[in-house]
Amino acid sequence: MVARYLTGPPAGRQPAFAGLMRRHKQPLYRLIVAQIGDPDDALDLLQESFVSAHAALGRYDPSRSLRAWLARIAINKCRDWHRRRRVRHFLARVLPIEAGERIADTAPDAQAHAIDRDDLARTLAGIRRLPAILRDPLILCAIEQLSHAEAAEALGITVKAVETRVRRARALLDADRA
C-alpha cells in the first residue's frame, strides 16, 4: 500500500492511504489507549498519528517495518500528550483558582471505565505508572505483539535493550501485585 501510495497516480493515493489506515488503526488505537488510559483522547491521538504519518510517508524507508514506524509516531504523540497534561496540571496548581477552570483537565479516570474489570484496571494502572523507558517496550511487545526487533526499531534502541526493559517492566509489575 505504501508503494502504491508513493508510486501510483495521484488519484490512487487516497484509497491506498485509506487501506493503510484500515489495516493499522486497531493496533495503533490499542497502543495509544494502553499508553494514556483514555479512550476518547486516544481517538484524537490516533487521528493525529495518521495525519503525521501521511505527512511523513515520503520519508518512510520501505526496508523497515511499517508497523514499527507507525508505532513510533503514535508513541511520540502519546509523549506529547503526557507533556501537555503535566503542563496543565502544573499551571492549575500555580495559577489562581479562577484560571484553573480555564485549563482544567477534564479527562475521565481510566479506572471508571473498567469498574467491573478490577484486575485489568490494576494492571493497566501499573503499566501507566512504569517509566516510559520501560512502559513503551512492554506495550509494544506484550500488548501489540511486535517482535523485539520491531520494537527496537520503533524505539530506536537495540534488541537487547528491549529484552532487558521488558523483563524489568514485568518484574516491577509483579512486585506491585505482591
Rank of each mutant, 00 (worst) to 15 (best):
158 T>M: 04
129 R>L: 00
142 A>W: 10
150 E>A: 13
113 H>M: 03
148 H>V: 13
122 R>G: 06
130 L>V: 08
156 G>T: 10
155 L>Q: 08
147 S>P: 03
123 T>P: 00
148 H>D: 15
118 D>Q: 07
113 H>E: 12
138 L>C: 06
119 D>A: 06
163 E>V: 08
165 R>I: 07
134 L>F: 03
144 E>H: 12
162 V>W: 10
126 G>R: 00
131 P>E: 15
132 A>C: 02
133 I>P: 00
134 L>G: 03
121 A>E: 03
156 G>A: 12
117 R>F: 04
147 S>N: 08
151 A>F: 11
146 L>N: 12
160 K>D: 15
140 L>D: 10
128 R>E: 06
133 I>V: 14
129 R>T: 00
121 A>H: 00
158 T>P: 01
163 E>G: 07
152 A>K: 02
161 A>W: 03
149 A>K: 11
150 E>R: 12
133 I>T: 15
155 L>A: 06
114 A>H: 02
164 T>I: 04
152 A>D: 04
121 A>V: 07
120 L>P: 01
163 E>P: 01
162 V>H: 03
116 D>E: 14
140 L>K: 14
124 L>C: 07
166 V>D: 02
157 I>V: 15
131 P>V: 13
126 G>Y: 01
153 E>N: 13
142 A>S: 14
130 L>I: 05
115 I>W: 06
161 A>Y: 02
121 A>L: 04
119 D>P: 00
121 A>G: 10
159 V>A: 05
158 T>G: 02
159 V>C: 04
144 E>W: 05
114 A>M: 11
160 K>P: 00
113 H>R: 05
166 V>S: 00
143 I>R: 08
133 I>N: 13
150 E>D: 15
128 R>W: 05
132 A>M: 07
147 S>H: 08
137 P>V: 12
156 G>S: 10
142 A>K: 14
